[in-house]
Amino acid sequence: MFLALLELRAARGRFALMGSVVVLVAALVGIVSGFTTGLGDDTVSALRGLPASHLVFSSDARSDQFARSLLDTKTADAWREDAGTDATPLGVSITRGTTDRGTEVDLAAFGVQPTGFLSPDVTSGSRLTAADAGTVVISAALADDGVAVGDTLVIDRLGIELRVVGATGRLSYGHVPAAYVPLKTWQRIRFSTPGAPAATAVPDQFSALALRSPAHTSAADLDERHSTTTLTKEEAYEAAPGYTGERVTMSSIQVFLYLIAPLVVGAFFAVWTVQRGPELALLRALGASRRRLLAHTVAQAALVVVAGTAGGAVLAAAVGLLVGEQVPFSLPATTLVTTMCTVAAVGLAGTALTLRRVTSADPLTMLGANR
């Protein structure tokens, strides 16, 4: 270990350069991880916040279920009775609105029964009530856009007026802030035709049926009986717009960075080992064992990789603080630690490229065997 530290000090320029490369790679992996988590939260946080275990869709909707699936009350009642569990309708659609103060916003309208278990808790104002269908509880993200409790929100083209009575957490769906309205109001938003009279009847349908707990009867049997498809809440995330594509793209970038890290570290230490060939042969001639030379090399690599990874973690966390809430970025401590540990592990794995040359150092080289 003493010799490893001496070499680090003697060639500090080279090791500093290598360490800076590890810092940048680790920071890049951390930043990509933060964007992956942030984009996922910005896409499905409203779904993740639902107090439900499963979601039931119509069987004819094989993708984009929240946009394509429609269930009626008859099916919901029959499903609820056969399942033997608490179930409530859920409607999801994306629309636009304008407040009475002229603020234009996009919103993901979640239609829920005000007395059902999907009705959101509020951080300010009051909750939805069955007595007033013209109310809405907004996400904190809509509050950031300029919508406040007490405002009147008018749905574009439909003229449906909603009074903002409360605000809940920072929840969104498909990168659009969530807004919770009574189910009857959601049906007007989803099925009304622009210019139609307000008294025009709309279908008594909704996007899905949310289950508080798994059905007592086999979900496959219930799906076959009622022409539905039951998904766990986590499986339903893929029905959110853009979720799967974003996850695949960002995860692919992370995988490539994990592949790059060991190659960069391995290439550096391979060159460094070649340059140290005579010194390694001298150490062997002086009686150093192969095990000691291996420990010496691994110690150098560990110091460079661990220090560089720690620097990358600090840089990635600093970027997260810098961007704040301007972009969808989220890097919890557990995610950061896991990511950095993986970077350090694959970086150290790259040093395996140099170990064979270290153990094959020939002490006869320093004793004139080549002369």
Rank of each mutant, 00 (worst) to 15 (best):
L3E: 09
R9V: 08
A10H: 05
R12P: 03
R12C: 13
A16Q: 03
G19N: 06
V23H: 10
V23T: 12
A26M: 03
L28G: 09
G34H: 07
F35E: 04
T37L: 02
T37Y: 01
D41N: 14
S45R: 01
L50M: 13
F57I: 09
F57G: 10
S58H: 11
D60V: 13
R62D: 10
A67N: 10
S69E: 05
L70I: 01
D72H: 03
D82T: 08
A83G: 10
P89L: 12
P89Y: 09
S93Y: 02
R96D: 06
G97V: 12
G97A: 12
T99W: 06
T103Y: 02
E104R: 13
Q113H: 12
Q113Y: 08
S119Q: 04
V122C: 10
T123P: 00
S124L: 08
A131R: 06
T135C: 08
T135Y: 03
S139R: 01
A141T: 03
A141D: 12
A143H: 11
G146K: 08
G146M: 12
A148E: 06
V149A: 12
I155M: 05
G159L: 01
I160V: 12
R163D: 13
V164Y: 04
G169I: 03
V176D: 04
V181Y: 04
T193I: 11
A196D: 11
P197H: 07
T200D: 14
V202S: 00
P203C: 09
A208M: 12
L209P: 06
L211C: 06
R212T: 08
A219D: 15
D223S: 15
R225C: 10
T230N: 09
K233I: 15
E235D: 13
A240C: 14
T249M: 15
S252Y: 06
I253P: 06
Q254W: 05
L257R: 00
L257E: 05
Y258K: 10
L259W: 07
L263D: 08
L263W: 12
V264L: 15
V265S: 13
V265Q: 09
A267S: 11
F268E: 06
V271K: 02
T273G: 01
V274Y: 04
R284M: 11
A288E: 10
R291I: 14
L294M: 12
T297V: 15
V298I: 15
V305I: 14
G308S: 14
A313Q: 00
A316L: 10
A317M: 13
A318V: 09
L322H: 00
G324P: 03
V327N: 07
F329L: 11
S330Q: 07
L331G: 14
L331V: 13
V337H: 05
M340T: 06
L348Q: 05
T351C: 14
L353H: 02
A361I: 14
L364W: 09
L367N: 01
L367K: 04
